[in-house]
């Protein structure tokens, strides 16, 4: 199971890097979404996988009776997903606004902030 998830993470990162190398900013954002999911899977896998054992404590006991899944990585992933969602919503709106303002999403042509000045006077 760990191997499968590790390979999945590898594939996701590979695809994400490919997308992020594109000149189109929209593709870059898609790459970011993929790689952030890969990061979430890394946390999840690194926290050890314990299938079929939810971290539940029986009534009246102080601690789980048997070996159960680690709940902390899941909490971390959940937090990361929520934060990531907010950031990507922002990034998408920003890209939309950039297209409306600058009229292009080709990163080579987005030179308003850093114009190609040539020789300084």
């Amino acid at each position: 199971m760990e191997t499968l998830l590790a390979v999945t993470v590898g594939i996701l990162i590979g695809a994400a890097v490919y997308l992020m190398l594109a000149r189109n900013v929209m593709r870059f954002i898609f790459g970011l979404v993929l790689i952030s999911n890969a990061a979430n899977l890394i946390i999840f896998t690194a926290g050890r996988l314990t299938p079929g054992a939810p971290p539940l404590i029986p009534e009246g006991a102080d601690a789980p009776a048997d070996v159960v899944a680690n709940a902390l990585p899941q909490a971390l992933v959940l937090t990361a997903i929520v934060i990531g969602f907010g950031l990507f919503a922002f990034a998408l709106v920003l890209v939309f606004r950039a297209y409306a303002t600058l009229g292009t999403l080709e990163s080579d042509r987005m030179r308003v902030a850093e114009p190609d000045e040539g020789a300084a006077p």
Binding site: I29, A91, L94, A98, S107, V112, A113
Partner: peptide
């Protein structure tokens, strides 16, 4: 700002 923002954000 939008142009610089894209680079900064990504």
């Amino acid at each position: 700002q939008i142009d610089g923002g894209i680079k900064y954000v990504t």
